[in-house]
Design a protein around this nucleic acid. Structure first.
Length: 525
RNA sequence: GAUCGCGUAGCUCAGCCGGUAGAGCAAGUGACUUUUAAUCACUAGGUCCUGGGUUCGACUCCCAGCGCGAUCACCA
């Protein structure tokens, strides 16, 4: 008789073979048919976060109530006075200990965990049944008084318990939790209730993005939103995702960067703009790359790359201080893996050519030695490839390794030859006015002194398109309207880009970009 | 896209010179009014990622595929 509920369910009406699911479905039916309880609830007003309920614990009220109970026991005519805080709370069941006539369970919400104690003697019978039958994963609301158990645990002593949503999926383990990364990313909603650290990371992410907005707005930047579906995907050297608009029968690309639109806004007269939003790049996936990622780009009229350097340095410092909870301008260091990263101002600055010389022992302009060293290091094409391409390869292999990963470092003044769209320095055209910020071996973002001569820009674009291979030329097209905009006239400007996901990785000590993106892209199962 | 590693119960993991599997937790039934990974007794739970091959016999060996992770390439 007893076992029939489970076995019939598992073999029959629900074709899910899992006994765990069958047990939950059986409880659902019992709630409905035996107790007349609808296990998918209704609006509840006045719910306080569990942390707030915990904070409402009052030692004097607790002691007073205990004395009153004692007194009432000795003399039943004494009225029981209870000055403990009355609260309504709600959350997901994450622990359940049934002692027979006394049930302890733990609820979890975004603010934390709190124990609920349910005594058979002090709640209606149906409420006690709900508490006894509760499974890991169920959503309950509870009314009661904030007190303490004999073992010293702060809890809500329930006077009412309501099933608000019966969970019908088997939960992860209560002790080991959920540690399988694939399941964590695919079923983030489970990860979030099983691993409070996940929720904390995303709370931190929100806080960081919000601090960035505050900082930029504080400096007079205006936030804008520009197209994410573009007829031409410009502004970066990356492969775009292609899509199609049916009614217009039009090929569209998901944007790879907002740059060309933000610059149009400078033409239109906005002096300081920024955008925080998604870019989409049809490239590989790894620990620091997700096909859609959040970037900030910012442009400042009549600034240059050094204007942006000061902005980014102050921004990263300010946000790090916010995360660390220290005032701006303080010493601030945050852990990242085995490193402790020092976000105190000023960040290090090193010129590209100096770092190159330090790492390789000769000038980057020394073509003969560049070629012979490339050959020594077994780089392909050491005799045929462009000199500056080899410089760039040597730099990435030897020079970037010299950067102290625990010190945020600006690498300034890249060779113009490998920064074709950047404005060359007026006095030294070989050098492009560009920097890259490196932290913990990751590139956080570049900045440039922007080109505003339409003829030079057109020439550079044209050259870039000419150099495109067959596949690249399917999406690399000349944005003539952008050139027109430059002809109307764009003020000289500084521009920067910053990978928000990577910054969040650093500040939240997350080793994978997937840990800071709520729903990272996964292959279809 | 390449190379390497991993895929066993709901979760976390053992296991096997080749003889069709085990633990803890979770689950079901029962006991228990102060538990903290509650405890005790009993019970149930598996396409050992998928498909081929070798073999008398494959979770184990081989091949292919799928998924995940790491490294590399592309990129930010």
């Amino acid at each position: 008789m007893e076992e029939s509920i489970v076995s019939e369910q598992s073999s029959g009406e629900h074709d899910d073979p899992s006994v765990l699911v069958a047990a939950r479905r059986a409880k659902l039916e019992r709630l409905r048919t035996e107790l007349g309880i609808e296990p998918f609830g209704q609006r509840v007003d006045g719910i306080v976060p569990l942390a707030q309920a915990r904070a409402a614990f009052d030692e004097a009220a607790h002691a007073g109530y205990q004395d009153a109970v004692k007194a009432a026991k000795a003399d039943p005519s004494v009225r029981l006075e209870d000055r403990r805080a009355a609260v309504t709370v709600a959350g997901r069941v994450v622990q359940h200990r049934d002692m027979g006539k006394l049930v302890f369970l733990w609820l979890r919400d975004q603010s934390g965990d709190l124990q609920i104690s349910v005594s058979k003697a002090s709640v209606p019978e149906a409420a006690f049944t709900v508490a006894s039958m509760a499974d890991y994963g169920d959503l309950l609301s509870v009314t009661g008084r904030v007190g303490r158990t004999n073992r010293g645990e702060t809890c809500v002593w329930a006077d009412g318990v309501t099933m608000q949503c019966k969970s019908l999926e088997p939960p992860p383990g209560k002790w080991h939790g959920l540690s399988d990364d694939e399941t964590r990313y695919r079923r983030r909603y489970v990860d979030m209730y099983a691993n409070p650290a996940t929720v904390r990371t995303f709370q931190l992410r929100s806080r960081i993005v919000s601090a960035i907005r505050r900082f930029m707005e504080g400096r007079g930047y205006q936030e804008v939103e520009t197209p994410m579906m573009q007829a031409m995907a410009g502004g970066a050297a990356a492969r775009p995702f292609a899509t199609h608009h049916n009614a217009l029968d039009m090929q569209l690309f998901m944007r790879i960067a907002p740059e060309l639109y933000l610059k149009r806004l400078l033409v239109g007269g906005l002096p300081k703009v920024f955008e925080i939003n998604r870019n989409f790049r049809n490239e590989g996936v790894d620990r620091s790359h997700n096909p859609e990622f959040t970037a900030m780009e910012a442009y400042e009229a009549f600034g240059d790359y050094m204007t942006m350097l000061e902005t980014v340095e102050s921004l990263v410092h300010a946000v790090a201080c916010d995360v660390a909870g220290v005032p701006e301008g303080s010493k601030v260091a945050l852990p990242f893996g085995d490193l402790v990263i020092d976000y105190a101002k000023p960040f290090r600055r090193v010129r590209y050519e100096e770092l190159f010389r330090e790492a390789l022992g000769f000038d980057m302009e020394d073509e003969a030695r560049v070629r012979s060293t490339a050959k020594q290091l077994h780089h392909g094409g050491s005799a045929t490839k462009d000199h500056w391409l080899l410089v760039s390869e040597l730099f990435e292999e030897k020079a970037e390794a010299l950067l102290d990963p625990s010190k945020p470092t600006f690498v300034l003044d890249y060779p113009s030859a490998i920064s074709p769209l950047t404005r060359p320095n007026r006095n030294r055209p070989m050098i492009a006015e560009r920097w890259d910020l490196f932290v913990a071996g990751m590139e956080i973002g570049p900045a440039y002194t922007e080109l505003n001569d339409p003829d030079i820009q057109l020439a550079k674009f044209t050259e870039q398109i000419k150099g495109a291979d067959e596949e690249e030329s399917t999406f690399r097209t000349l944005d003539e309207d952008f050139i027109t905009a430059l002809r109307v006239g764009m003020p000289p400007a500084g521009g920067m880009g910053m990978g928000i996901d990577r910054l969040v990785m650093l500040l939240s000590n997350s080793q994978s970009i997937r840990d800071v993106i709520l729903f990272p892209l996964m292959r279809s199962e």
